[in-house]
Amino acid sequence: MSGTGPLGAAGAVLRRDLTLFFRHRSDIINPLLFFIIVVTLVPLGVGPEESTLRVMAPGVVWVAALLAAMLSLEGIFRSDFDDGSLEQLVISPQPLALLVLAKVFAHWLVSGLPLVVLGPVLGASLFLPDRAMGTLVLSLLLGTPILSLIGAIGVALTVGVQRGGVLLSLLVLPLYIPVLIFGASAVSSAAAGLPVIGPLALLGALLALALTLAPLGAAAALRISLS
């Protein structure tokens, strides 16, 4: 029960954020609905031909996942900033980057993981071949945490700005491009029966890089935004 140093504090942050998300379920569900609706719009826009949709499926699922992840980003820090909890995090004796990592992980569990689960369903609705499903799941599993991690820096930078939502997308979307490229091309390769190890390995490398650097960047950005 009592605080047990940095890891205990990070665990407490994780537990608290998960509790908060579950008491505010709409924050989790709305981006998921958005994800589903965007994918549904595509056949309505380009026509229901199986051949067209099959080619587009990897890109569409990944772009929709990108946008859905971005929509939910503000939840990482916004409410904590508004009620002053963020100040308490910053002036706690625990390493801020670790607390940020715990918050990002909590956010990914409720916003990124559902995308991973929903991905194959939406892929199937766009006639993505079965043999690409495993790669789709794996690429989303490796890619969505990167989206949350990079996004955390963006939110941390814009959290002090009134109506920072559009600004956030302007900052974050260009940085998401490598994830989109490697994620979508892994799925395309799998659909075409080509080897997928290359793009997946690159996604893994990006994830390792983001895990190491992004919490530090987000922590620095938070200190700046609070000042």
Binding site: L157, G160, V161, L167, L171, L175, G217, A221, I224, S227
Partner: peptide, 23 residues
């Protein structure tokens, strides 16, 4: 956009510098 959105000059400079480094 970030530099012009933040009102306080020093905060704006520091925040956009972090963004430039990330970039």
């Amino acid at each position: 956009a970030l530099e012009s959105a933040i009102e306080d000059r020093r905060t704006a400079a520091r925040a956009s510098s972090v963004l430039a480094l990330v970039g």
